[in-house]
């Protein structure tokens, strides 16, 4: 019990990081699983969300203001995702996709840096979540707990939509056999564009929610992109459950692992990823359908 007591807050921090990483990474995973597009602009999409927080939030922001900011982030994310889907639709080769999306990311990152400056910008949590709560006799920021809960809700909702609704069935069918979906009269490009838009909206939302935890600064987009890529390949491309597991693992490695093994801190993340991939090349929980599992 003593060990757990000493490390409880670190593990909670790891869960909060995992919650944010899940929101950001799940879009990357679904876009790759359904569209076979490796979207390296995903990090900058997420950073855009963080800067939306910089622009719209201040310490006095109430519940309504925070919900407005979340809706704004999601709406801008939808637009960014639709644009990215349109731009990448003619490029089927992974390497050229990488060149295109990383090029877009570099341009967008430069523009964001120009608009918001190169300094670290902190984002305040909304006023009603600004305090802390008692957990086993220790105080913990309420905002981080809220992030964990919200991410759980979104994750479950996403899973239900994908597994239990007709729209979800269409997405799964598109992953499994695009030609067949076309043959029964569905424009698969619309399905794919929709997945891209929703994935990007989750990334901007995740970026906005990450603001009060990670701040906003140039270069954060690359860090987030790398972490999200690690989450996605550890978990298994195109799989929601995989993204959950990958996010939890990466979150704990980055907090608990670093706190227990400070000397190895900088090796832990990529070391852990290499070990997982060499043991299970398809990831821990690969998608049960379609192309994601093949990669």
């Amino acid at each position: 019990m003593g060990w757990l007591d000493a490390n409880l807050l670190t593990m909670l921090n790891g869960l909060a990081l995992a919650a944010l990483l899940f929101l950001i990474a799940v879009g990357l995973s679904l876009v790759f699983g359904t569209m076979d597009v490796l979207n390296l602009a995903h990090g900058v999409v997420s950073l855009t969300g963080a800067y939306i927080g910089v622009a719209l939030l201040d310490p006095a922001t109430g519940t309504i203001g925070f919900i407005v900011a979340m809706l704004a982030a999601a709406a801008i994310g939808l637009v960014l995702g639709a644009v990215l889907a349109a731009v990448t639709s003619g490029v089927s080769d992974h390497l050229r996709q990488a060149l295109l999306t990383l090029g877009i990311a570099m341009i967008a990152g430069d523009v964001l840096g120009e608009v918001f400056g190169s300094d670290v910008r902190s984002v305040p949590p909304p006023a009603f979540l600004g305090g802390s709560v008692e957990i086993l006799g220790r105080s913990y920021p309420a905002y981080r707990l809220a992030v964990i809960v919200l991410s759980l809700i979104i994750g479950v909702a996403l899973f239900l939509v994908l597994e239990r609704t007709k729209a979800g069935a269409l997405v799964r069918a598109t992953v499994a056999d695009r030609t067949m979906v076309e043959a029964i009269g569905v424009r698969s490009r619309l399905v794919l564009g929709g997945v891209f838009a929703v994935g990007a909206a989750l990334a901007t939302l995740g970026g906005l929610l990450a603001g009060p935890v990670l701040g906003a600064q140039p270069g954060l987009d690359n860090t987030v992109l790398l972490l999200a890529l690690v989450v996605v390949v550890i978990g298994g491309l195109g799989s929601i459950r995989g993204a959950v597991l990958g996010a939890v693992l990466v979150g704990q490695v980055q907090t608990l692992g670093v706190s227990l093994l400070p000397d190895l801190a900088s090796f832990l993340l990529f070391g852990a990823m290499a070990v997982v991939l060499l043991l299970k090349p398809a990831g821990l929980l690969p998608a049960r359908y379609g192309t994601g599992a093949r990669a």
Partner: peptide, 26 residues
């Protein structure tokens, strides 16, 4: 060990190799 994987997994394993060498140097 690295060449046992392929495609995007190989890409990520090589990313790990590159980053680990970078961290050792650092």
């Amino acid at each position: 060990v690295a060449v046992r994987t392929a495609g995007i997994v190989f890409l990520m394993v090589t990313l790990a190799i590159g980053e680990l060498i970078h961290q050792v140097a650092d």
